[in-house]
Amino acid sequence: MTSRIQRRTMLGLLAAGAAAPALGACAKGGHASDPTVSTASTAQVGSGGPDMLMIIRHAEKPTGSGAPYGVTDAGEKDDKSLTIQGWSRAGALIGLFDPRDGDGHPAPPRPGLARPTRIFAADPSSGGSKRPKETVTPLAAALGTSLDLRFAKGQEAALAAALRSASGPTLVAWEHQSVAAIIAHLGPVTPKPPASWPGSRFDVVYVFNRHGDGWNFSQVPQLLLAGDSPHPIA
């Protein structure tokens, strides 16, 4: 059991690849305190659960031509990849979406979330951003599931069609400018989500719970890294 816990811990650390030394410097700022674990239903603890769609923006990216730079999981500079802080968030998402107790057993996810049974990310193969895929790759490895990369940026209508027919908890990692396009093709959503996703926010989960032919919308702050906001997007 100890080796299992150690393996899961290493998944988060390995998310930064050769950039791991820089992660140590990032950690000096400290992470936000872990939220209290919920006493959620058993359905949320396992791989099942209600029809829930969770959408996250990819993790932190370069803001210009200078530092912080994007780096691949091998530590090579790449402006289409995550920054060191972004890789830190990618690793931390394991604890958010696949929490474990001290013995390595599945623990209840935070209230409002569920352990995903499938994960979609924007396909970067045509030269697009690698960040959505990189953001959820460590989580997919921890869950032992494959990423669904059938859709690329610009194919939000087709993605939404697949999401409407999906069952169980589903997670999507996408570029923030195009999240509204996904929502627009989901069907009726109540209450109305924000019109746009602010460029400065990487720390929120949009949650859609199926209700009849539509969805109930809510937001869950991630609270994973220092500086994460406890407030939803207005």
Rank of each mutant, 00 (worst) to 15 (best):
G17N: 05
A19C: 04
A20S: 11
P21H: 00
C26I: 13
G30F: 06
D34A: 15
T36L: 14
S38K: 10
T39K: 12
A40D: 13
Q44A: 13
V45T: 06
V45C: 11
G48P: 01
P50T: 13
D51S: 10
M52G: 08
L53E: 03
I55W: 05
K61I: 10
G64Q: 12
G70W: 00
V71Y: 02
T72S: 13
D73E: 07
S81G: 03
L82Y: 02
Q85H: 08
G86P: 09
G86R: 01
W87K: 02
S88P: 09
S88K: 10
R89P: 06
A92H: 04
G95M: 10
G95D: 08
L96K: 02
L96S: 08
D101I: 10
P106T: 03
A107E: 07
P108M: 09
P109W: 02
R110N: 02
R110V: 11
P111H: 14
L113E: 08
P116Q: 03
T117M: 14
T117Q: 15
F120G: 01
A121V: 15
A122L: 09
D123N: 15
P124T: 06
S125H: 13
G127F: 13
V136H: 01
V136A: 00
A142C: 12
L143Q: 00
G144C: 10
T145E: 07
L147R: 05
L147S: 03
D148V: 15
D148E: 02
L149A: 04
E156R: 00
A157K: 06
A158N: 09
A160E: 04
A162S: 02
A162K: 01
S165P: 05
G168F: 08
T170S: 09
E175C: 07
Q177K: 11
A184C: 11
L186P: 05
L186W: 09
A195T: 15
S196L: 13
P198Y: 10
R201I: 07
F202A: 06
F202S: 05
R210L: 15
R210H: 12
H211V: 11
H211P: 07
G212D: 07
D213N: 14
S218A: 15
V220T: 12
V220N: 03
G227Y: 09
S229I: 04
P230V: 03
I233C: 08
